[in-house]
């Protein structure tokens, strides 16, 4: 698993830079092209794509995302495929 997903709670307006600062992540560890993606705006919950090592280091596995400076995760980012035609 080359890259994994982590979640983070950030106050609005949230930016990728703010998330990286909060989690002490370097540019090499983050998929900056993917960016910071909102999962649930009502809960200020966002997701990032990071290297497996970074995910293990900053992830706290709290499920919905942490408020304590740790990230939620790491979560898998599996491939997805069309369900057809059946083979």
């Amino acid at each position: 698993m080359a890259e994994v997903l982590i979640t983070v709670r950030l106050p609005a307006p949230a930016t990728l830079e703010a998330a990286m600062r909060r989690l002490d992540l370097s540019e090499d560890e983050v998929d900056t092209a993917y960016g910071l993606v909102p999962i649930d705006p009502d809960k200020n919950l966002y997701v990032l794509r990071v290297t497996e090592d970074a995910g293990r280091r900053v992830g706290g596995h709290d499920g919905g995302g942490a408020d304590d400076g740790k990230a939620g995760g790491p979560y898998s980012d599996p491939p997805i495929e069309p369900y057809g035609p059946p083979r």
């Binding site: 994994v4 979640t7 999962i39 919950l45 499920g63 995760g73 979560y75 898998s76 495929e81 369900y83």
Partner: peptide, 28 residues
């Protein structure tokens, strides 16, 4: 579409798993 194989996922029961885990970011 969907995921055909558990190969690229964390195992079921692992907190980072997708297939069985309602807390995975996509399921959220």
């Amino acid at each position: 579409w969907g995921s055909f194989s558990p190969r690229w996922d964390f195992p079921a029961g692992h907190p980072g798993n997708y297939s069985d885990n309602p807390a995975h970011p996509f399921n959220l």
